[in-house]
Design a protein around this nucleic acid. Structure first.
Lengths: 207, 207
DNA sequence: GTACCCCTCACTAAAATTAGGTATGCTGAG
DNA sequence: CTCAGCATACCTAATTTTAGTGAGGGGTAC
């Protein structure tokens, strides 16, 4: 039983070469193709592929639209994203939406076939450059924290949703002291409201 | 110029086979080996490898200890973790500590050599099963959002640090309307302050 | 020792947020 | 049609946050 692969790509030459590539691989079966994702649901219902090889940049309905539709309606179908760019934002958007992998068009044909196989086997696949970015997300991003220890502690609690009074209670401080810390936080972060301070916390200091 | 690879593994047979494997690859050069990471700093200073293939489970000083030491003292040396288990906790600990990849011992020799090359080239490499777990980390962020569209929009801006007035300006609403939306947000989220609402946003809705 | 930062606390007052009520128009579901 | 939810808007009042000024003690660096 071979793996049925559906291809989305707006470039005909590329679709043809991918198709040819698959016809040379007994374990892969070309299931169909599309130039964009306008009819993605119908395509899936008609050809029921195991794996979709999805170009990102396509006119009218791009690969991310297609990915979302497929994972919403047919979550069992694996979607392998493929693009010429390694745009960080798009990578993470695809990952959040359930893509099983992210490879580049410059990757070798052998690697692409291998990726399809691995995705079909339930794994995930990333181009090494992509993987680096994804792993980089976990690296402790040590932004400069201009706040003192106590100030950081106060901001952490505020970011949890506590009011000034609750922070004072929790840290066994007077409200006035908490107030002072917060004034210093505002000065150091160049902000002037609780919301801005919390936004700074989650963007720069959290975990 | 071939890639100098240092191997840590407590299993002699495995070290030997990896060594043999490398001697068959002109682009890879065996630089040395260790049965644990007790002398990791000295090893690096003596053999200055480009890539370290690091077993995780070793007696006395394991691969994670070694990884941390290497990345602290020689951050330019790439470390490729290798283990028999795909233990989720260890995976993330390695990633946080700067590992360039995570592969399994059952991966094919060809794949291991390929991984070393890709790590050396500045990429990151993961076994497909590992990659699936890593990508899965990004998934769970789809909590139900009980807020209406406009309410969500208001909360997004508040979470960016804007005041009620600024939100009103930005959305071309009256302050009163923004106020009403926020009251509804408080009711729906079961919170009673801006801080709590923003905390909810960053924990459940953001991204 | 002096200067600087941190942590603590107090008082005051202005500004913003929270909370209550009320109201209109629109839309979609039953 | 009716009801519910949404988006819009206004008013009032209590509460909280923001901001200013001042101050004592502890620690450290020069």
């Amino acid at each position: 039983m071979s793996i049925k692969v559906f291809i989305y790509d707006d470039n005909e030459a590329r679709r043809d070469s991918l198709k040819a590539l698959m016809e040379l691989s007994p374990e892969l079966q070309y299931a169909g193709e599309g130039i964009n994702c306008l009819n993605v649901i119908a395509d899936m219902q008609t050809y029921f592929p195991d794996v979709v090889l999805m170009d990102i940049n396509m006119p009218d309905a791009d690969g991310i639209v297609g990915l979302k539709s497929i994972k919403k309606e047919f979550p069992h179908i694996k979607v392998l994203m493929q693009t010429v760019f390694d745009d960080t934002d798009k990578i993470f958007e695809c990952i959040r939406n359930g893509a099983s992998g992210y490879i580049l068009k410059k990757d070798s044909p052998q690697r692409i076939l291998q990726a399809i196989q691995e995705v079909y086997d339930g794994g995930a696949v990333m181009n090494p450059g992509i993987a680096l970015k994804v792993l980089g997300y976990f690296q402790p991003q040590k932004k400069e924290n201009p706040l003192s220890g106590r100030e950081t502690q106060v901001l952490e609690l505020l970011a949890e949703g506590l009011s000034y009074k609750m922070v004072a209670d929790k840290l066994f401080l007077s409200f006035n002291t908490v107030n002072t810390h917060i004034k210093h936080i505002h000065e150091k972060l160049h902000v002037s409201s609780l919301g801005e301070a919390i936004a700074f916390y989650y963007k720069n200091l959290h975990q």
